[in-house]
């Protein structure tokens, strides 16, 4: 299942530069708001679901080469964060849904932890 399908199914808003999301296939999912846990637990090419929206999430996503970050509950994302994400090639997706709801929908679509 590619990222464009996930974005359509969940109604996610892309905050960063557009690209051909049909060519990106997230292979796993991970949810946590503690960056140290994400660093240890999230897998490369995975989707990360969090309500953290500060600058440090970009470094984590770039380090782990995540397919995208889904920022939940409409957490405020500063322009500097979006700019950094674009520089690092990180995709930021936003939703008013809670992390619980997003994870439930991703699971229903067939995405798993690994």
């Amino acid at each position: 299942m590619n990222l464009q399908t996930i974005m359509d199914e969940l109604g996610l808003t892309c905050l960063t530069q557009g690209r051909n999301f049909t060519t990106i296939t997230p292979t796993s999912g991970y949810a946590s708001d503690l960056l140290s846990c994400v660093m240890a637990g999230a897998k490369s090419d995975g989707l990360w679901v969090t309500l953290q929206a500060h600058l440090n999430i970009i470094a984590i996503a770039a380090l782990l080469e995540l397919s995208a970050i889904i920022i939940t509950e409409n957490a405020q994302v500063e322009p500097a964060v979006v700019q950094k994400a674009n520089e690092q090639g990180v995709t930021l997706l936003a939703t008013p849904l809670s992390t619980f709801e997003v994870v439930g929908k991703l699971w229903a679509l067939g995405l798993r932890a690994d």
Partner: peptide
């Protein structure tokens, strides 16, 4: 501290 190495390009 975890036994992780810094990535200067990112951090």
């Amino acid at each position: 501290l975890p036994a992780l190495e810094n990535n200067p390009d990112l951090f």
